[in-house]
Design a protein around this nucleic acid. Sequence first.
RNA 1: GAGCCUGUAGCUCAGUGGAUAGAGCAUCAGAUUGCGGAUCUGGGGGCCGGAGGUUCGACUCCUCUCAGGCUCGCCA
Length: 579
Amino acid sequence: MSDKTIMQEIEGSLISIIRDGLNNIAAGEYQILLEHPPTRDMGDIAFPMFKFAGQLRMKPFDIAAKLKADIDKSELVAKSEVKGAYLNVFLNQKAVAARIIGAVCKAGSSFGRKPRNGVKMLIEFSSPNTNKPLHLGHCRNNVIGDAISRIYDFCGYDVIKLNLINDRGIHICKSMLAYKLFGNHSTPESVGKKSDHFVGDYYVRFANEAKANPDLENQAQEMLRKWENHDPETLELWKQMNGWAVGGIKETYKRMGIEFSDIEYESNVYMYGKEIIEKGLEKGVFYKEADGSVWINNEDVGLDKKIVLRGDGTSIYITQDIGTATRRHEKYNFSRLMYVVGSEQIYHFKTLFTIFRKLGYDWADNCYHLSYGMVNLPNGRMKSREGTVVDADNLIDLLYDMAMEAINDKQRIADESKKSDIADKISLAALKYYLLNFSTGKDIIFNPEKSLSFDGNTGPYIQYTTARINSLMKKAGQFNADNDIFADYTFNDDEWAIIAGLLDYEKAVTSACTQNAPIEICSYLYDLAKNFNKFYHDNQILNSDNELAKIVRLQMAKAVLNILTGGLQLLGISPLEEM
RNA sequence: GAGCCUGUAGCUCAGUGGAUAGAGCAUCAGAUUGCGGAUCUGGGGGCCGGAGGUUCGACUCCUCUCAGGCUCGCCA
């Protein structure tokens, strides 16, 4: 595993040729840009000459014409063309293909995986409340957090996945109270309901009952006080209902293939912030109001005043976050801490990180809020009161049924348990890919009738491509895997598009990591799969009458499969042998 | 009121200051005596919200403006 990717080595070599060429015209510092031409038939790599025109007082076209002779000498270059202000380079396909295909076939689906960099990174995501089941918004969080974790791990980081379950507070007491009043000692088992949905029903029940009887709000507050005073009966009820809620939510995680290194509970950690507030008071970071409440003034950094401890000494959301982060640093000694939390909390995290800085934490600047946009419906926000929330379990069920119907239509698979396993994987691929194929920070509109699909730019499309190639590999059996065969082969355009695509994989992964953008992987994989499907449609492999073409194409197909497999895994999606 | 985000094809969305702004869906027209048709090929469809500015060059950067969203809770 070299530090540089294959593409970086190629590009670096070309850039130094350009730099030498420019210095031969006139010595100086040149910032050399390198990009892809708009279409493949214009070349593989383009050098724009605009920047040098001013420096050298020459026309861009003339500079390109001068550099052309130098670049043409490189072993990596087949030819180059001057087009307008661009010098377009066509790579030596035989040499490049041998390198990239050889490397990908050797490394398998872990091609592109970076050596460990020793950076310990905590990633907190999901962090559900225990008063209701997961919905589509949580799905986006889970899927982004999971993919980001996998991508960072692949890029060399030592990733620890954290889930901080919010299992205390007034909202939890609301479902507890409704159950106490209207539950009649029923259980999820007695009514035959998934346990987190059972709890969620009482949260909805509370909201409905409280409309007619506003005093229920007071009763919920009273229950919260009892909880904080360790009232045995209240704690017992809390344990029972939390057990149901968490149990049900964990079932959904398992079904989604989402795992955590550590699950934290707010009920265990909420008190840790208070002592830090006390210390901060002594240092003058915070100040006390007449009612005993503790505040911080962040107006110096363009934020507002913010309360960090109530007058009665009880903690609030941000108190817990201060304590939790501090404790995590003591426990893990992390290098970086990332919070995957919705964009509506941007201000909260600005405030939180400012507090870390003012407390003098040297790791304050290594905290990052990865915010993702809301999932809306065509009519607007999802609202639990209006029953428009898209429930995670129901949505996955729906996708599963759609996948099963498609499997039955195709009639390729007979075994029932195999069908079920594949339907699981297809439904999750559709959901995860759909949610990841957006810019992370932006709000998205989910249309239940239109957004669910297995055709076109979707997860199942990529899976389909892996199934086709896997099937091809089975039929091919053993084949010559030497990569010195490429010297004798001339690639057609469809083939070269694929090989050039293979070269771009490492750049896509790096970009996905540095930009925190799983969509980069989606776009890349779709492009590669699409190029392969076009090639596969128009070119023969096993039935080719040319033995050399057959072996070259099998190796190419194998390389594509390796990268699609590895790339899907980065998204938390299973490739398929058949479907 | 203040801060942040968004505005690109009928719809949903891509688009590190660079060549003719792309994809999926939808729509219309095609492809299988072929290794997987959940596939492939093609057509139509755009004043990139609007107006200024910076630059050799702006969907991209700056200012103003219009429209929508989020936030500014002793909720989490």
